[in-house]
């Protein structure tokens, strides 16, 4: 895939630099998009594989199984609208996965996949206004988990 270089179009009121755990959604991490990827970790803290798997399964969080088949046989009913995530680590590197999770519309404008780290969508339910679906560290955790799917 070839893409024009896009310079970080940052969403929300970005607070540069200092972000870690428990970041409030309206203090979003600034990130840079390079050739349709996000090379830099959002938090600088290594992702937790076990927590990433939990977040991926959780129907209120990643809910990845809604659309993707995953190598998690103990979970019943995997969705089929998206590609299977078995072996996804062979197909996408960390930077590509980060882009797909943070805001997939940058590389696939018509995708059904939610942007897990973005705010400002149209007519968001009041309880979720100004909040991202996942927190920055949760994004990193899910990436770490997905990287194990070889």
């Amino acid at each position: 895939m070839k893409h024009k270089k896009i310079i970080s179009a940052v969403v929300g009121a970005a607070v540069a630099g200092t972000i870690g755990f428990g970041a409030h959604a309206n203090e979003m991490v600034k990130y840079e998009v390079v050739d349709g990827t996000i090379p830099q970790s959002l938090t600088g803290v290594a992702g937790d594989v076990a927590n990433g798997k939990k977040v991926a399964i959780n129907r209120k969080k990643g809910n990845c199984l809604a659309c993707h088949t995953m190598p998690i046989p103990e979970e019943q009913f995997h969705g089929l609208t998206g590609p299977s995530l078995e072996g996804v680590a062979e197909r996408m590197n960390e930077a590509e996965l980060r882009m797909r999770l943070v805001d997939p519309k940058v590389v696939a404008y018509d995708t059904m996949m939610p942007s897990f780290y973005r705010t400002g969508q149209h007519r968001v339910l009041k309880d979720f206004e100004g909040k991202t679906i996942l927190e920055a560290q949760e994004i990193e955790d899910v990436i770490a988990y997905l990287r194990t799917l070889k």
């Binding site: 609208t81 018509d110 969508q121 339910l125």
Partner: peptide
């Protein structure tokens, strides 16, 4: 055709692009 909500979906994403395909156990 307008995307909406935190999940950023338009009606068409489920009911036009993916009709008759499973979302979890739900056949769209």
């Amino acid at each position: 055709y307008q995307r909406r909500g935190q999940l950023d979906l338009a009606c068409k994403h489920c009911h036009e692009d993916n009709a008759a395909i499973l979302v979890r156990a739900e056949l769209l």
